[in-house]
């Protein structure tokens, strides 16, 4: 059996450094997939701020194309709700 650390062998404050969130691809949880209508997107960046993951990003610099990292998007729909021009559609996953 794996030997677990004693209380005084553990880092204080419950810190995790294994960054499991970048290993575990939570995108598989999704039921609805957000699709950005790039022709209407104003690149305001509001969705980036609201995405709880966060998995929405500018392709390169600010004002460049807005992309969603579907490896991690859980399909919560917050971006679609908050987008001021309503250019994100939630589409049922195949």
């Amino acid at each position: 059996m794996k030997k677990l650390p004693k209380w005084n062998e553990m880092e204080e404050g419950f810190i995790t450094r294994i960054l499991s969130e970048s290993i575990n691809k939570t995108g598989t949880w999704r039921t609805f997939k957000p699709i950005i209508d790039q022709s209407r997107c104003t690149k305001c960046g509001w969705c980036i701020v609201y995405c709880p993951e966060p998995c929405i990003y500018y392709e390169s610099k600010k004002d460049s194309k807005i992309l969603i990292d579907y490896d991690f998007c859980k399909g919560c729909g917050i971006c679609a709700e908050e987008c001021p021009v309503k250019c994100i559609n939630m589409v049922l996953e195949e």
Partner: peptide
């Protein structure tokens, strides 16, 4: 130097 604080335990 990313870390996670207070994750599921």
């Amino acid at each position: 130097n990313p870390i996670t604080i207070g994750a599921f335990c």
